[in-house]
């Protein structure tokens, strides 16, 4: 159950793939480290799998289960006057940026994101803790549409 302020839209499926690839990469690194540790400790510890077994469980979680769960808990909504970004399940955060407070806007795209056709929209405000609010995993067109309408709003509000 999320915090119910506005109906939220899910992220693009492309971002799910991005998260899966990232998760799989982390999992592979973990497994690699665990295998190395097993080989080094093989002589001293008579119990094989003492390190690898728990790490394997963590890797399965990080690589296979967590990405889709995390993706599902992301959501966003652009109402025209504010941008809502929500994420998290155990610790839920629902961040709201009033459009009139936006100082400048980034549309960024990493190599992995580009491969799956998604982009990250970053709003900068004059705030302190939350001076940058990022929304990863929407299509480039959506990001640019939101950016353009925010820009238009800022221009007309003055």
């Amino acid at each position: 159950m999320a915090i119910d302020i506005v109906p939220l839209e899910p992220l693009e499926r492309g971002q799910l793939h991005v998260m899966r690839v990232r998760g799989a990469f982390t999992a592979l690194v973990l497994i690699g480290l665990a295998v190395a540790a097993e080989l080094i400790l093989a002589e001293r510890f008579p119990l094989p799998g003492l390190v690898a077994a728990p790490v394997l469980l963590i890797a399965i979680w990080v690589g296979l289960i967590a990405p889709s769960r995390r993706w599902r808990h992301w959501g966003y909504a652009f109402t025209g006057s504010e941008l809502h970004v929500a994420h998290g399940w155990l610790f839920q955060v629902h961040t709201i940026v009033p459009v009139v407070r936006v100082q400048h806007i980034d549309v960024a795209q990493g190599p992995l994101q580009r491969a799956f056709g998604v982009a990250t929209l970053v709003l900068h405000t004059a705030g302190t803790d939350a001076s940058t609010v990022g929304l990863p995993g929407i299509s480039r067109e959506t990001a640019e549409d939101i950016r353009d309408s925010i820009r238009a709003r800022i221009g007309s509000a003055q």
Binding site: M1, I3, I5, L90, F91, Q92, V93, H94, T95, I96, V97, P98, R101, T125, A126, G127, T128, D129, A130, S131, V133
Partner: peptide, 29 residues
């Protein structure tokens, strides 16, 4: 002066049915 508003909930807060509201302002320490 309110820049960004966030509503947050941790596991305990879900049990209690509460949530916290963070108010971000410019120049805060």
């Amino acid at each position: 002066a309110v820049q960004v508003v966030s509503v947050r909930r941790g596991p305990l807060q879900r049990l209690l049915g509460t949530a916290s509201v963070s108010v971000d302002t410019a120049g805060a320490g």
